[in-house]
Simulated assay, not measured.
Amino acid sequence: MTRSPRRAAPDQGRHVPVLLPEVLAALGLDRDGLAVDGTFGAGGYTRGLLQAGPGVQVIAIDRDPTAIAAGQDLVRTAEGRLRLVQGCFGALDTLLAEAGEAGADWIVLDIGVSSMQLDQAQRGFSFRQDGPLDMRMGGDGPSAADLVNGSEEAVLADILYHFGEERRSRAVARAIVEARRRAPIETTAQLAELVAGVVRAEPGSPIHPATRSFQGLRIAVNDELGELVRGLHAAERALRPGGRLAVVTFHSLEDRIVKQFFAARSGRAAQSSRHLPGTEAPPPRSFRLVTKGPVLPSEGETDINPRARSAKLRAAERTEAPPPPTLSAIEALASLPADTRRARR
């Protein structure tokens, strides 16, 4: 586990990408080539990639149409070196092919909700400002309100427990079902107040009691863990030999998936003994690790950017081995258990 060095405070009022110098160093942009920012957001990593060298071309992907629209000024200032593509990074290899590219030299993924989305009350991601209970990154599909008002109690409890890591998930789900019998739960303030009536705030903690429940719903609405699993495999298919993948995560569920993916693909995962009869040969190693453990933000970065507190960076370099089959064990980490009867408090 490596902690990055201190850095100067950024300009106030500007979106600050987390661990940007560390991401650029891990990617090793030392030649001309094609970089992919799979999670464009407010464009922080894309700007860093463009500044790495005049021979670096960038394709930036985002599922949020408002992010694509807001990035058009950056496209113009990049003078032909940047293309924005609306879509999910879980299909980035297909999106690259549709853009006429045979592969990529560098890929960066910044997992989770963007600061821009959190700051827009009408998007319904945050309980700090009242707004419609939406949480959809792409604006399509069922919203958080649909899940809250339409899911069975056991399913809600599973979402909050497994995706939100909320220990009081059963009690919160029960309170939601009781409340929606009287009237639909339609706003972030309604839900936050309801959860706060069930989950006690920890003494001295700045974390709101509804934080974990909101996280769980957001992950479920956007299939964020499934998208991460698809994105890791898509990056594996898209990267040229010697190309590098850097992934920044913000909570343990995401980091566990990235850690286990890189461990399996680099040969660090536990293997069956070669002396046992009937065991299969290990798959070819499609990645070699660039970071031996997670790179953490410096204390200076977390002081000026509290969002960075839980960030972890992991990176690996693509080998010449062909992409092995999809890892079913990693896919399982992104799913709810089949048995929704598991006991919780």
Rank of each mutant, 00 (worst) to 15 (best):
R3Y: 12
R6Q: 14
R7G: 10
A8D: 15
R14S: 15
V23Q: 05
A26C: 10
L29P: 02
L29K: 03
D32C: 09
A35T: 08
D37Q: 08
D37I: 07
F40K: 02
A42N: 00
G44S: 14
G48V: 10
A52R: 03
G53R: 09
P54Y: 08
G55P: 07
V56K: 09
V58P: 02
I59Y: 03
I59S: 05
I59T: 07
R63H: 11
T66G: 14
A69H: 05
Q72T: 05
Q72D: 00
T77V: 10
T77W: 12
R81N: 00
L84Q: 00
V85Y: 06
Q86K: 11
C88N: 15
C88H: 15
A91D: 15
D93F: 13
L96C: 14
G100F: 04
E101F: 14
A102V: 14
A102N: 12
A102Y: 10
A104I: 07
D105E: 13
W106P: 06
L109S: 01
D110I: 02
G112E: 00
M116G: 09
Q117Y: 07
Q117L: 06
D119W: 05
A121K: 04
R123T: 05
F125Y: 09
F125Q: 07
S126C: 11
D130I: 01
D130N: 13
D134L: 11
G138F: 04
D140R: 14
L147A: 09
V148G: 00
V148M: 10
N149R: 09
D158H: 13
D158T: 12
H162K: 10
H162W: 11
R167W: 10
S169K: 12
V177D: 02
E178M: 08
R180H: 07
R182W: 07
A183V: 06
E186W: 08
T187E: 01
A192K: 00
L194R: 01
V198A: 01
G204A: 01
G216L: 04
G226H: 10
G226R: 08
E227L: 11
E227W: 07
V229P: 14
A234H: 08
L239I: 09
R240C: 08
R240S: 10
R244K: 07
L245I: 04
T249C: 08
T249Y: 01
H251W: 01
I257S: 09
I257H: 05
F261M: 11
A264N: 13
R268L: 13
S272Q: 15
R285T: 08
V290L: 03
K292H: 13
P294A: 04
P297G: 09
I304R: 14
R309M: 05
P322W: 04
P323E: 07
T326W: 15
I330K: 03
I330P: 13
S335M: 15
R344G: 15
R345D: 13
